[in-house]
């Protein structure tokens, strides 16, 4: 089939960027969306033009690297599918497709469809973990977790950190991303210990990074390739309310800082 593409081209963060038109000919329905772009790029390269830059790695829908907004929907029309797993049989001959980068203040564009999502990493770094050291932990089976809780934690933990939720949210909020992490760890006894600290530091990090807030539009869930549930946002809010009055302290045990040498 033949398609008309309007693709966002932007040299770097300073450039203003614009949509450019490309024709994609001879596209087969068995191709993935990214393979379709590969075909377009190959032609561009051979014509001496710069190919469209886009992020991708596993092409299996698990690494969360791929990120594009297709006809206004992050990851495209199929639902519960990453762009790399989206196949061209979802489109028809003659379609016009708009391809844009994820848009959010917290995700500056690096080049074309590639954006900088390190803000999500910084939210995790702010406290999205259990502060356990390597070694010295008890036998795994001494920590019992009800099957239901373990399964729910797993459902939350499926988040691939692609940032589609942020790009879909009219407020550019990362609530679903936080919700997934906070709920995953809060469901487990190991994670309860520092639940308050975690939610507080992650929420402040989210604001600091320039993400918006949740107005419960639920666009995030609609585009989430892993279908992370909205109830986790409620859980995040619950955890946040529980943490009222908690005074954050720094994790001084993370590294043996300057050990004073006793003489």
């Amino acid at each position: 089939m033949n398609l008309t593409l309007f693709v966002w081209r932007q040299k770097g963060p300073e450039d203003t960027g614009r949509l450019e038109r490309y024709e994609a000919g001879d596209i087969s329905t068995g191709m993935s969306f990214l393979e379709m772009l590969d075909v377009v790029n190959d032609k561009l390269i051979k014509n001496g033009e710069e190919p469209i830059a886009f992020d991708h790695d596993c092409r299996e829908g698990i690494c969360g690297t791929c990120s594009q907004v297709i006809n206004g929907v992050p990851h495209g029309p199929e639902g519960k599918t990453t762009v790399c797993q989206l196949h061209m049989r979802n489109f028809s001959d003659g379609d016009t497709i708009y391809i844009e980068p994820l848009k959010s203040k917290a995700f500056p564009v690096i080049s074309d469809l590639i954006v900088d999502r390190s803000a999500l990493d910084r939210i995790i770094q702010a406290g999205g973990y259990i502060s356990v050291h390597t070694g010295g932990v008890p036998d795994a089976n001494t920590i019992l977790v009800a099957k239901h809780d373990a399964d729910t934690a797993m459902d939350a933990a499926e988040c691939i950190g692609c940032g589609a939720c942020v790009a879909a949210c009219p407020n550019g909020s990362a609530m679903l991303f936080l919700a997934a992490r906070v709920s995953h760890l809060a469901m487990l006894p190991q994670g309860r210990v520092e639940a308050k600290r975690r939610v507080r530091s992650m929420i402040s990090a989210m604001s600091k990074e320039g993400f918006g807030n949740c107005s419960n539009h639920y666009e995030c869930h609609a585009v989430c390739p892993k279908g992370i549930k909205l109830s986790f946002i409620a859980k995040l809010n619950r955890e946040f309310i529980k943490a009222f009055g908690y005074v954050a302290e720094k994790d001084s045990a993370a590294r043996p800082a300057d050990v004073s040498i006793a003489d």
Partner: peptide, 25 residues
């Protein structure tokens, strides 16, 4: 706050779940 977190909109905008009401609070 929310407006500043979302610079610019998409060339085509397809809402999937939000409503007229939610977007115009």
């Amino acid at each position: 706050d929310n407006c500043s977190a979302r610079p610019g909109s998409y060339a085509v905008r397809a809402y999937r779940q939000s409503t007229f009401a939610s977007r115009n609070m």
